[in-house]
Design a protein around this nucleic acid. Structure first.
Lengths: 412, 412
DNA sequence: ATTCCATTTGGGGATTTTCACAAACTGTTC
DNA sequence: GAACAGTTTGTGAAAATCCCCAAATGGAAT
């Protein structure tokens, strides 16, 4: 009979594990089955031959991130997402990967998961490839069942998350019982992170995001949802002394990967402070929205700031701006300096601003302005004369700095 | 006949000038008559003999301030305000004052003015003294007339000023016609000054204030009024480049004199920015009240600040405080440092505050804290580690400073 | 054209600041 | 009481900053 007609996978099977063993038996090599997010679904056990990457995958119940990264870079995963044919992966010793063959499991235009066959003793033939395609086809239905079950869970989790974000769920007990029913173990402290996209997030992007989040092992994402152009996450925070560093790394990685892998750029990431009390998720969420709003107003000044705590005085800009506008205040020193600049077309204001930005460091300021340090000193002397500014008074300097930044914003 | 019965001043006279000439004729010496505020009311002209002080008085239509100051210090004016007897003043060449005799003009318990007799050729005798007393008595009625006329004007001016302060008088024309009818020439720019007393101002103090203001030649006071414990002034500002200095000197002098001469201490002086538009007096007034309110909250920090412009960041404290309380924000760095201080009973917070107060000057801070400069450096290094503070970032430093001051205030 | 004023740049020395290291001290823990 | 981490102080040399002076530039006013 022709290979195309023979299909050993038509038989019914109860679990994916059983199915994995069946494939392993037919092809005579170790098999692992993953979902679309590289989470381990099943693996063959009849065979003891394996490689380090497979061991890590089985132990961690997911493919290690460095392996995923490597497979992305090297082109295997992109290929699997494109074609329904088996793909051969060469030996990659540096990440403990032997020769293997992979195939994606499709349902219409969507990839549901992957089957991996490791070529330990034998090299798979063309016929084996054909069998693999049949196996992938047979796996489809089983994976679909898993998917729908998960979707239901997902919907519940979405509702739960929004209740938390909007502060509609009070009472610690209620919150924790919800977590439990979702089989999520809430960490002792958390933060809310928001990634703001330039456009509304499409369902295609949603899949990519989901994939990225699930494969990221940097941070534990407890819950996530999408709201127009914002991706909102509930992230568990390690009890480390420097939680900020972890967060920074996580959001940077996410943004970079979204750009590199899917060509989505212009994402603004922010995250909240650390919280212990899960009843304060709404506060954390508001915090992130506030950061986004301020970053929109002062994009340049805050481009390296992703959290409320680090916003510094920009935390206060909205409220100060409001006050200033209400009282029609004008900073006397700045006014004088501005007038002087106009009259003599000098640039005392600019000099002052750079000087304050550079934390009163003469040398750096001079460098930034491309002038001699003595020139700068002279100008500063003039500024203190004309604007009646005492550079030794932190109080005066601060208000000057604030009013300068406010003016800059208002002038735009 | 006895000297007590003979009274050459019983005759009717039309003007004070005529009366001054009459006294001069009787006593055979130059005479000047002043009101209670040392404003020149009349002087004898039949006699050409005089001294420099009298010349200045006549030319300026008031006694020069340095002469007044001298007469206060030396005790003449205090004596005149106590007794109804003539007082002899010795030669004071440094201020151009010859020997002279003065007497106060009384109406019940209030001094209405003074008569001065200059002893150019002759020394006044006991009899002359007696005549002088009679002259003072005769002058009383004439001065009372002037007083009531002035009181009416005063009442109108009070009403006018309050309309301006409360913003109930709009329209430049209307304002200027009011000034004109009060015979006040408004200066091109002005400011509002407020002196806040510790207790409500008594009518006795009111007289003293009025006297001080009228004799002060440092500043031109266009209008003034009293509101409970506040003395409110409309002051004309010179077009000088450094108007602040003048104001500062004026308010200091006023406060010092109120204390020295009348024993009234604890006066808080403030003044507004310079304004050109007389329709904005209400804004200027509000500004002064705002400064007073902030000075009440941060008396120590603002003890050398008397104007809104110089308040620096304290301008913003009320609004920031409000915001912070609304958002339940806590500065992460400060929290960490505070916890560290508690645990190790160190004083990182204090160190940080002094350091920021001293404008990042290591030496001054070390001196203020009574520690070695290296100790300070070590502490700062620890602060930046524990609190995750980057001292090179002005933004971070500012918010730290602000939150520190806010905390200080809230802790009280 | 000349003068005047404000500005820029350079040099060089006095002064301060910075930094690394050593030593001593303190309070805590085992 | 020994060990230890954390803190304070001292020393000295390298680095930087500050400050004064002089010279050059350039624009505006006379």
């Amino acid at each position: 009979m022709s290979p195309n007609q023979y299909d050993p996978f038509k038989a019914a099977f109860d679990s994916l594990e059983e199915f994995a063993d069946l494939i392993s038996h037919v092809l005579n090599c170790p098999i692992t089955i993953e979902d679309a997010n590289h989470r381990l679904l099943a693996y063959s056990t009849h065979d003891e031959r394996t490689d380090p990457a497979r061991i890590s995958t089985i132990i961690g119940r997911r493919v290690p991130e460095k392996v995923i990264n490597q497979l992305w870079k090297e082109g295997t995963i992109p290929a699997l997402l494109k074609t329904r044919e088996p793909i051969r992966v060469k030996n990659m010793n540096d990440i403990g990967l032997n020769h293997r063959v992979a195939i994606s499991i499709w349902k219409q235009e969507e990839v549901l998961g992957f089957i991996w066959a490791i070529e330990i003793d034998k090299i798979l033939t063309e016929e084996d490839f054909d069998l693999l395609k049949k196996a992938a086809d047979a796996a489809k239905n089983k994976l679909l069942q898993l998917q729908t079950r998960k979707n239901k869970k997902e919907e519940h989790s979405q509702e739960f998350f929004w209740k938390l974000l909007t502060g509609h769920l009070k009472g610690e007990k209620e919150i924790f019982s919800n977590f439990q029913s979702l089989q999520i173990s809430p960490s002792p402290s958390f933060a809310v992170a928001v990634f703001q996209f330039q456009q509304n997030i499409t369902s295609k992007e949603e899949q990519n995001i989901s994939y990225l989040l699930k494969t990221s092992q940097l941070m534990k994402i407890m819950l996530y949802t999408i709201d127009c152009n914002q991706l909102i996450l509930l992230v568990s925070a390690a009890n480390s002394d420097v939680p900020f560093q972890e967060f920074d790394q996580f959001i940077q990685t996410f943004v970079v990967k979204m750009s590199e892998r899917y060509g989505v750029s212009g994402i603004t990431p922010v995250y909240s402070s650390l919280y212990i009390d899960y009843q304060k998720i709404d506060k954390a969420y508001k915090e992130t929205l506030s950061v986004l709003s301020i970053k929109e107003k002062f994009p340049h000044e805050t481009k390296d700031i992703f959290t409320y705590q680090k916003l510094g005085i920009y935390q206060l800009f909205e409220v100060i701006l409001e006050k200033r506008q209400a009282e029609e205040y004008e900073n006397y020193s700045l006014k004088k300096l501005y007038e002087y600049d106009q009259k003599h077309n000098s640039n005392l204001i600019e000099t002052l601003e750079v000087f304050l930005n550079k934390d009163h460091n003469i040398n750096e300021t001079a460098k930034a302005l491309n002038v001699h340090a003595n020139t700068l000193n002279y100008r500063l002397k003039r500024i203190s004369e004309i604007g009646d500014v005492n550079f030794k008074d932190p109080n005066q300097k601060m208000i000057l700095y604030l009013d300068l930044k406010l003016k800059r914003y208002q002038d735009i």
